[in-house]
């Protein structure tokens, strides 16, 4: 791989994680707000709330996997 190509791969990997992160963040804002609201009333919701909040994080994981494949597999 010439340096330009390697650089482009790195940029691509960065975009994959970064954009996925923005997406997950947008998804999480409402869930996070709701989780905090429920928890404020009833501490029993702590576990469920935390769990619900990480659900959209799947997207970042997918982004991260794509980035890893770009960096390590290709």
């Amino acid at each position: 791989m010439d340096p330009t190509q390697a650089g482009m791969v790195a940029v691509g990997a960065g975009l994959a994680v970064g954009l996925a992160g923005i997406g997950a963040g947008l998804g999480e804002q409402a869930i996070g707000a709701a989780a905090v609201g429920a928890m404020a009333e009833d501490e029993k919701f702590f576990g469920k709330g935390l769990l619900m909040t990480v659900i959209p994080e799947s997207i970042v994981i997918f982004g991260l996997v794509v980035a890893l494949i770009l960096l390590f597999v290709f």
Partner: peptide, 21 residues
């Protein structure tokens, strides 16, 4: 600019928990 849903998420989750009690 929070979306319409996100704006109410906190208070709605809270009153739902209150209603459960």
């Amino acid at each position: 600019g929070a979306s319409d849903g996100a704006k109410y998420a906190y208070i709605v989750a809270r009153v739902r928990a209150m209603k459960g009690k």
